[in-house]
Structures are given as C-alpha cells and as structure tokens.
C-alpha cells in the first residue's frame, strides 16, 4: 500500500512542474516589456529601470527565472501583485474559500442527483428515468454555461424576482447564512447541470456494463433483493470510472468556472484570474496557476487513495 501510494505521488508531481513551467514560459514569451507594462512606458529613469531588471532577474534566461520563481514559491514568497500592490498570497487566500464553497456545493449536488438517476436509468433502459437523464446529459453537453446563466438570471432574478444574481452577499445588510445560500442557488444550478450530465453518462455506462456480468446473475440467483444487487454489487463495482470523472472535474471547477464566476460576479479564483490577465499581472497569474496545479496534484493523489479503497486488487498491487 505504501509503495503504491509513493509511486502514484511520484507520478503526479511532474504535472505540477509541467503546468507551472508551461504558463511561466508562455507569459515570458508575451510581446512587450514586463517592466514597461507594470510601470507605464517612459515613467522610469534609466537607473530605476536597470534596478528593476535586476530585481526581476530579467537579465537571466527564462529557464533560470522559472526555477527562481519556483524556489521562492516553495519558500512561501509568492511575490507582490503589480496591479494592486498587495501580496499575491493574501489576494488568493481571500478568494479561494468562495471558489471552494461554490465548486464543492456544485459537485455535491451533481453527485446526489446523478448517482441514483444514473443507476435507475441503467437498471431500466428506455424508461422515463432513462429519458430524463438523456435530456439532462444533452443539456449539459450542448448548452454553453454562460447562456444557461443568462437564462437563469433572466427568469429567476428579473422576471420572478425570487433570487439574487450578483455576488455572494447583499451589500449593506449584515451577512447571514440564508443570504449566502440564496446567492449560491443560481451559480450552483448552472454548474451542477453541466456536471450532472457528465456524471449521469458515466454512471449509466458503468452500471450498465457491470449489470451484464456473471456475478450479478449469481447475486440475483441467490435471491438477494434487487436494491441490494444494484447498490452493493453493481454500483460499488461501477464506482471507479465515476470517481475518476468526479475527480477530474475538481480542478476544472476551481479554475474553470471562470465564465460562471464572471457572469454572477462571484468573488472567486476564476474572476481573479480574468482580472490578473487583463492587468497583465504576471505574479498573480503564476500564483493562481500554481494553486490550481496544486489542487490538481492533491486531487490526483486523493483519487488514487479512493481507487485503493474501492478495489482490493489495486490495494494489494495486483494491477
């Protein structure tokens, strides 16, 4: 078990270096001079300019600069955001909570809907449940989430006036849990429709495949109740591909809910990334990228732990 885990961790770490290096090199390839962008062209004396070149190691090749950045990132020095003069670490830590709240809730809602519905539609193909889940899958895959957001805002916030559509709290009112919850309904709805579609497809496919296998027939012939067959025998063996899909979604929600966060003015990492890119704030871009890459890393390792818990063959190193 320890060996399995160690091997998986060693395989996952290069992903972190790869992603941060790609983004670092891409930002350094950008046309225009970083210092001029930060300070404004012609605002610096020659001495100040050269001091900045030295401070940002711009006289060094890009590979050396990447490793210098990596060294200070690991040491906890994430730099100062040029756009706001605040520390990058503070800016990210203020925002990461709201992103985790939004994405965590959306995944939870999606799993709670998709697992039972997916099992039902695999159990009785072409039933009402199956058709319902096809419709949800189709909406999730074909309707861009910003369009769905616009429709939701139009319907729930403008026409019916029952839900707020901007931000996390109503400004000027004491922050309450109920207020937060009502602000979360629309973005969670939009994000979870997309996720539910994705999970439904996986659950249905995986359970359908398992239901055709010999041991399910054995279980049924032993006279076990159908519910027990579905939950204990079929779903449990179908969980690995489902867990993979869920885990792969986590980083996408942390950084990929950019559009949804922007439409609903949700103060998360996605909208911070847009701000950073608009301002060409390289330290902030790198900080957010690294945080997302870290989440990818942690999720990968967590996923391997879940695999091992689900499948004894993996746990004992047989696969």
């Amino acid at each position: 078990m320890t060996r399995y885990l160690l091997k998986r961790v060693l395989l996952a770490i290069p992903i972190f270096f790869g992603i941060t290096a790609v983004v670092y090199i891409m930002s350094s390839l950008a046309p225009g001079n970083v210092i001029n962008i930060m300070a404004g062209e012609g605002n610096l004396t020659r001495e100040a300019y050269e001091a900045l070149v030295l401070e940002y190691h711009l006289d060094q090749p890009v590979v050396v600069r990447y490793f210098l950045w990596l060294k200070s990132f690991v040491a906890g020095d994430w730099g100062i955001a040029s756009s706001t003069s605040q520390s990058v670490y503070t800016m990210i830590s203020v925002r990461i909570g709201s992103t985790l709240l939004l994405s965590g809730t959306s995944i939870l809602v999606a799993v709670l809907f998709a697992l039972p519905l997916g099992v039902l539609s695999a159990w009785r193909p072409y039933s009402v449940w199956d058709h319902l889940s096809s419709v949800i899958t189709f909406i999730g895959a074909s309707v861009p989430n910003f369009f769905l957001s616009l429709l939701c805002i139009w319907l729930f916030a403008v026409q019916l006036r029952i839900l707020p559509s901007q931000g996390m709290y109503t400004p000027g009112v004491p922050q309450t849990l109920g207020d937060l919850a009502s602000h979360m309904v629309l973005p969670v709805l939009v994000l979870s429709v997309q996720l539910t579609g994705n999970y439904l497809k996986q659950t249905r496919g995986a359970v359908l495949e398992v239901l055709g296998s010999e041991y399910i027939r054995t279980a049924r012939s032993k006279g076990i109740t159908e519910k027990r067959v579905l939950v204990r025998h079929a779903l449990r063996n179908a969980l690995i591909p489902i867990v993979t899909t869920i885990a792969l979604n986590v980083p996408f929600l942390i950084g990929g809910a950019v559009v949804t966060e922007q439409v609903f003015s949700w103060p998360g990492l996605g909208s911070l990334m847009i701000f950073a890119i608009e301002k060409r704030d390289y330290n902030l871009i790198m900080g957010i990228t690294a945080v997302i890459a870290l989440v990818v890393l942690i999720v990968n390792i967590f996923m391997d732990l879940v695999y091992a818990a689900l499948d004894p063959r993996i746990r004992r190193g047989l696969q």
Binding site: A30, L248, V258, M273, I277, I292, N300
Partner: peptide, 14 residues
C-alpha cells in the same frame, strides 16, 4: 487534468 479555459485565456492574452 488542467482547466483548458485557463490555458486558453493566458495564451490568448499573451
């Protein structure tokens, strides 16, 4: 495993 939208946003900006 990395969100495509972030990579696309950064590369388009650059």
């Amino acid at each position: 495993s990395f969100p495509a939208m972030i990579l696309v946003l950064v590369s388009v900006a650059m």
